[in-house]
Design a protein around this nucleic acid. Structure first.
Length: 185
DNA sequence: GTAACGATCCTC
DNA sequence: AGGATCGTTACA
């Protein structure tokens, strides 16, 4: 299966600041072909994790085997397990050596980062997958620019007063996205 | 080797 | 409110 012409998001987009990319992802289409059929989901909730200074970011302790992926050039996936049960799907952003990623927390109509990966079949095998060239997962542009709000990130109270309150979670506003957008196709 | 800790979700 | 469940990390 081939992404529809000119709509696929390429590497350039991902080699930027997680704080810009996280909200820009809202309304974009996540495409995952299944059994030769096109399955796609509109992104509705994201969170930015940016740099070793960000005490909520896994890279706060520097390079480790797990965080190595966050140091790569933007556009690859960073997938890891939390609480022994739930896969978390992140899109790495920034230039090589700058550890950043955007956590995908929700798509239309799946709320929650763990439910999202479970529904879409994302697991460890997607760690390092390249959104710029992969044939099993990629992003496409839409003409949908949903309104959104920014709030503190979820589940990172351990990060301390400065970092836990940064409004780096981005979530679309409005109940039912269905019918509120159209894709170019 | 040992132990503590989660970027969560489900059930009570 | 509490349990599930296990990879990652730090430390002895």
């Amino acid at each position: 299966m081939i992404p529809t012409m000119n709509r696929r998001i390429d590497r350039k987009f991902f080699v930027g600041d997680a704080l810009d990319i996280a909200p820009a992802l809202l309304g974009m289409e996540l495409v995952i072909p299944k059994n030769g059929l096109r399955e796609s989901f509109i992104i509705t909730e994201t969170e930015a994790y940016r740099g070793e200074e960000d005490l909520a970011c896994h890279a706060r302790k520097g390079r480790t085997p797990r965080t190595e992926m966050m140091y790569q050039t933007g556009g690859v996936l960073y997938v890891y397990l939390v609480y022994g049960m739930h896969w978390m799907m992140n899109i790495v952003t920034g230039i090589q050596g700058s550890p950043q990623a955007v956590l995908l927390r929700g798509v239309n109509d799946i709320e929650g980062p763990g439910r999202l990966t479970r529904s879409l079949g994302i697991d460890k095998s997607y760690n390092g997958e390249d959104l710029d060239s992969s044939h099993r997962i990629w992003l496409e542009r839409t003409n949908f620019n949903p309104p959104y709000k920014a709030t503190p990130r979820i589940g990172i109270d351990y990060a301390g007063p400065v970092w836990k309150d940064k409004p780096w979670r981005f979530i679309t506003e409005g109940r039912n996205l269905s019918g509120n957008y159209t894709t170019f196709s």
